[in-house]
Amino acid sequence: MAKVRPPTLRDNRRYVLARYEPRYREFDPKKMYYVVQDAVTGLFGDLRSVSIGQAVMSCEGGFLIVRCLRGGEDDLGAALAAVTAVGDESVAIHPMKSSGTIKTLRDVIKNNQPVMGPILEETNSEGQTLIRREGKKVDVVRRKNMSQNNFYCVPEDMEE
């Protein structure tokens, strides 16, 4: 078992909670780790990346917890905001809160759970259409052959 370092030698860590959209997408935490690392390095370079010390702790349910060293929260938040895609899938990451413990962030996650509606699935001659609802948000995903078209709207737009 690794020896616990004395307080003087311990790194001072902070944990940044971020929300990602679309919330229903599942991302591999390892992939997300490399994406965040590339974002930090791309924006601030290798030297600053070492002093930020980012590491993705968890990535599920629409929330991301990223560890960093104290003093690097703002730059990490900027780098998270600069992420636009994980692999081929578009994503938006919104930094929410920073804390010294993961427990506080897990409490915030518990209080901000989305209410997802049922997924409606239709298949017709135009291909497969998936309609996902979260409250007033409607995501229409149309798949035809190998291509995919997304349309993000609200129920009033569907009626029109």
Partner: peptide, 13 residues
């Protein structure tokens, strides 16, 4: 809408 960023994130950038 995936291109939107919160005011906080915009300020950080």
């Amino acid at each position: 809408y995936l291109g939107l960023r919160s005011p906080r994130a915009v300020a950080l950038l």
